[in-house]
Simulated assay, not measured.
Amino acid sequence: MDAPPPPPPQPPPESFPTAVSAAAHVADDPLTSPYASMNSYCHDLSTLQDLACRGAWRTIVDKVARSRSLSLLSKPHEHLIYLTFNLLSLVKLRRYSDAQQELRTLDDDLDSKQYLCESYPDHYPNHKSGSMVPFALRWLHAHLPFTLGDRQLALDRLYTLLHFIRDKKLSRNRDSTSEVSLSLWKKREQFVVNTIISHHLPEGVQGMFVFVEGGDKQK
């Protein structure tokens, strides 16, 4: 009777931790799977979405505070998402000074390297380069000065945001951008344009719509 074949060679023991760690990083990267659930992308995100849809702003503020105190947010993008919900809730509650304090915890330059996925390879090993800053956070960053009486700073930031949308999202890499994404960014562009107009109209600048819509297209 023939002897059974020898078992396949095993890797040396020291290689197991490396392999397990690598697999854990890949499986734990929430930005690599487009089919992941909302909660796998960010801790309890579905609850935040539901509370926001119901206008439960005080509950969101309490939930964000609790999640932070219990250290439930482990990744940089989760902190930004929770900060965005908290900031929006404070604005909705007209707690503008508190919202300003929350915003001051961020770098004023939202395009800073600290907000790029590639700055955190341990957290996002397989994710392509790009910003983690939600659009809502960019808009709130631009809008908040207006609520505090600094209309000019708000306008400056809104125009910067409009330039960001047109230059980085609508003008570049159109061939590699999906129609769904382009449509979304066009809607965001119009939203920012309308916000700019709303800030100008009280001053009687009726022609600003023409300038914003077509001024940057003129040669």
Rank of each mutant, 00 (worst) to 15 (best):
Y115G: 10
P13K: 01
L87F: 06
E189D: 15
P202H: 04
W139S: 10
C117H: 05
Q114R: 10
L155K: 06
C53E: 14
S112I: 06
L83V: 01
T195C: 14
P145Q: 03
P11G: 12
V91M: 10
L83T: 01
G215V: 04
S40P: 01
D28W: 06
D167L: 08
A22P: 04
H200D: 14
S131W: 00
H43W: 11
P30L: 04
R138D: 02
T47I: 12
I60L: 03
P76I: 03
S171G: 09
F209A: 15
P13Y: 07
R151H: 12
A19Y: 14
Q206A: 15
K169L: 14
E189R: 07
Q190Y: 13
Q218D: 13
G207W: 13
I81T: 08
N194D: 15
P4G: 04
R157H: 03
D216H: 13
H77C: 04
V91Q: 05
S129W: 07
F16G: 06
M208K: 11
F211R: 11
E14K: 02
P121H: 04
F16W: 13
V212R: 03
D167N: 12
Y115D: 05
F85E: 00
A19V: 15
K187D: 15
S71N: 12
T105P: 02
S69M: 08
P4N: 06
M1C: 07
P5N: 08
M1K: 06
P121C: 08
I165N: 00
G149H: 01
V64A: 03
Y120K: 02
S176G: 11
E102Q: 10
S181T: 15
D107Q: 07
F146Q: 06
R174P: 08
S198Y: 12
L90H: 01
R68K: 12
F211S: 13
L184Q: 13
W185T: 02
R54Y: 07
K168S: 13
R166L: 08
P11K: 11
T195Y: 14
D175V: 11
D216M: 12
G204N: 05
K186V: 15
L51W: 02
K217G: 12
L144V: 04
A23T: 09
L45M: 10
L148M: 05
C117M: 06
H199P: 02
L161R: 00
T32K: 06
A19R: 14
R68S: 00
V205Q: 14
S89C: 03
G214C: 12
V210P: 03
R166T: 09
R104V: 09
K169G: 05
L70E: 10
V61N: 03
E213P: 04
N86K: 10
P11C: 11
A65V: 08
P7C: 04
F135M: 02
H163V: 12
I81A: 07
L106Q: 01
P5S: 08
Y96W: 04
R157V: 04
G214N: 14
F164P: 00
A3V: 07
P202G: 07
H25N: 11
V64D: 00
T105G: 07
T160M: 08
D156K: 07
P6R: 13
H123S: 08
R174D: 14
D62L: 10
I196D: 01
